[in-house]
Design a binder for these strands. Structure first.
Length: 565
RNA sequence: UGGGUCGUCGCCAAGCGGCAAGGCACAGGGUUUUGGUCCCUGCAUUCGGAGGUUCGAAUCCUCCCGACCCAGCCA
């Protein structure tokens, strides 16, 4: 009997959904939404929420809306909504015609407010912000009622009308829900529903000068859209009673809020505010700096949407606060890139090799495989000649234990070319190795010795005459500590000073002259690279290093170093 | 000192009374013209702690310990 099954792992949200379906709730209908505020760029933490909402809906044959939560005109801008839409599409999700804005509901929300006032459940309060805070009490002490709490319905209606009509300046008064100033839940101590903001809104312009608060908007928006499961992060747990209170008192469709733990990733920060600090302080080149955990940054760096989605699935979904190892993200990335990246040879830190017994002026075109994981990607030709470049760290005059690469008297293979043997080292006055003379064995063409002798190492190389120059930007982790926010000092003190190294004298095989900006390359033995979408040109090629290959030798070296200590 | 939530391997995370899934990381070994990939193997007698209920508990009960969130006219 064939067994199928490839459903993603179970989690507490799916359990709830399945229970609801079993119980026939909403006739088994599942409808979610992703509700970003257009006040910044999306990062990989948002990707977790996006995948959760869209994938959950898809798995249960439901729908997922995109809704901009735009109730604070002082912080929101159209440019962010465009960027957010682009990022979600890039991840491969689509909301069809279900693009909504909380601001679409301003009129209904206003009517909802009227309804609550009429039911005696809301009132206009003239207390100043300071007084409101004072009256709210503390975590352990009950608050006290506002002196304006018992205004009549008529009076409230009239004042709220005036608020709407711009009769008051900012901060003069607010509309509050009349709940319970002694509630142990601070959110229930007569929360603010509307505040006065004489600010132009990115969509409604000057139409309104009062704006609803998050609490008076979110649940109702969910309700209006008939959202069945409203997923948000743990920070809103304490708001759930209020979310339900508005829905119950308004007697509208009962969406259900469920909270999950937000993503934390090691060696970076995932908070709009903190990321903004990095951008505004010029610690990075912008929101799309390849070191940023923003979706635009990851994209520019060369991350694939598939790897991010895979990551979001593998980290699971729970309520325990956690710090996910960035190594898992890198693993997902390498796994995807390994299957699809076009292999090429590139030398980042060139060392000149002269093959003394190779004919002067001769050039051979050697066959190279484009992707050993995918035969359909075919073959290409790579030129070979007397002078070539290899990586500086592939040669050591005095090799340590386990170093199998080139060193005096040693023989190695040049990938797809020949075996070469190191004969002589040339140094400059300062003692630096400037070039290395080798001899080659003509019988090893293609990389195999007819006599069956083996070499331990295979090196990548680029023919000097045909090499093209390029700049390569090597990116690394943004921070030098796992959890920068857990440190005593300001998190910016822990930025990794080596997170970007720019190499300007890199040598690439000639096929890269026509490198495409949307093609992922593997520079053999080094890592995965992508053309920089902004700075690369025909005149000057610029590649970004997405991620290195796993490097066993580097780990051995590290171990050897720490052994000596 | 109020309220809410969480605590299963180094990092995530299944498990929902029948005797600890999986992934990452790590450690060994095999294959290999990338020290890559791939393939094997190992990696929690134990589920924050202590009691209790039960033939049987990570799963139920009690108490304790620890961590996080809430006092914006932000979301």
């Amino acid at each position: 009997m064939a067994k199928k099954e490839s459903t993603s792992p179970s989690n507490f949200i799916k359990n709830i959904v399945e229970e609801d379906i079993r119980a026939g709730k909403h006739n088994g209908r599942i409808h979610t939404r992703f509700p970003p505020e257009p006040n910044g760029y999306l990062h990989i933490g948002h990707a977790k929420a996006i995948c959760l909402n869209f994938d959950l809906a898809a798995e249960y044959k439901g729908l997922c809306n995109l809704r901009f939560d735009d109730t604070n005109p002082t912080k929101e801008e159209t440019k962010y909504v465009e960027a957010i839409k682009e990022d979600i599409h890039w991840l491969g999700f689509d909301w069809d015609d279900r693009l909504y804005y909380a601001s679409d509901y301003f009129k209904i929300l206003y009517e909802y407010a009227l309804k609550l006032i009429e039911k005696g459940k809301a009132y206009v309060c003239d207390l100043s912000p300071d007084k409101i805070r004072e009256y709210r009490g503390t975590l352990t002490e009950s608050g006290k009622n506002s002196p304006y709490r018992n205004r009549t319905v008529e009076e409230n209606l009239e004042l709220f009308e005036k608020m709407k009509n711009g009769k008051f300046e900012n901060g003069k008064c607010v509309l509050r829900a009349k709940i319970d100033m002694s509630s142990p839940n601070m959110n229930m101590r007569d929360p603010i529903m509307y505040r006065i903001l004489h600010t132009k809104h990115h969509r409604t312009g000057d139409k309104w000068c009062i704006y609803p608060s998050y609490d008076f908007t979110h649940g109702q928006s969910d309700s209006i859209e008939k959202i069945t499961h409203s997923l948000c992060d743990l920070g809103f747990e304490g708001h759930r009673p209020l979310y339900n209170w508005f829905i119950e008192n308004l007697e509208i469709f009962p969406s259900r809020q469920i909270e999950f733990a937000r993503l934390n990733l090691s060696y970076t920060v995932l908070s709009k505010r903190k990321l903004r600090e990095l951008v505004e302080g010029n610690f990075v080149s912008g929101w799309d700096d390849p070191r940023m955990p923003t979706l635009s940054g990851l994209r520019k760096r060369g991350f694939t949407q598939k790897s991010i989605r895979d990551f979001c699935e593998r980290i699971g979904m729970a309520k325990a606060e956690s710090l996910v190892d960035i190594a898992l993200l890198e693993h997902c990335l390498r796994e995807d890139l390994n299957k699809r990246a076009q292999r090429v040879m590139a030398v980042l830190n060139p060392l000149k090799i002269i093959i003394d017994n190779y004919p002067e002026g001769k050039t051979e075109e050697l066959d190279a495989v484009n992707n050993p994981e995918d035969a359909s990607m075919g073959m290409r030709k790579v030129p070979f000649s007397k002078e070539i470049f290899i990586e500086q760290n592939d040669f050591m005059e005095e090799p340590p234990k386990k170093f199998w690469r080139l060193s005096p008297g040693k023989e190695v293979r040049l990938r797809y070319a020949y075996f070469i043997k190191c004969e002589k080292v040339v140094k400059d006055a300062a003692g630096n190795v400037v070039e290395v003379h080798c001899t080659y064995d003509p019988k090893t063409k293609g990389g195999n010795a007819p006599d069956g002798r083996k070499v331990k190492a295979t090196l990548h190389w680029v023919s000097a005459k045909q090499a093209i120059n390029a700049e390569v930007r090597q990116y690394d982790r943004l921070f030098s500590v796992e959890n920068p926010l857990a440190e005593q000092d300001d998190f910016k003190e822990y930025l990794n000073s080596d997170s970007l190294k720019i190499l300007t004298n890199c040598k690439l095989e000639p096929s890269l002259e026509n490198a495409k900006s949307d093609t992922q390359y593997q520079f053999e033995r080094l890592g995965y690279f992508l053309i920089d979408s902004k700075d690369s040109s025909n005149k000057k090629l610029v590649f970004n290093r997405t991620v290195t290959l796993r490097d066993t030798w580097a780990r051995i070296q590290k171990a050897q170093k720490s052994d000596k200590k």
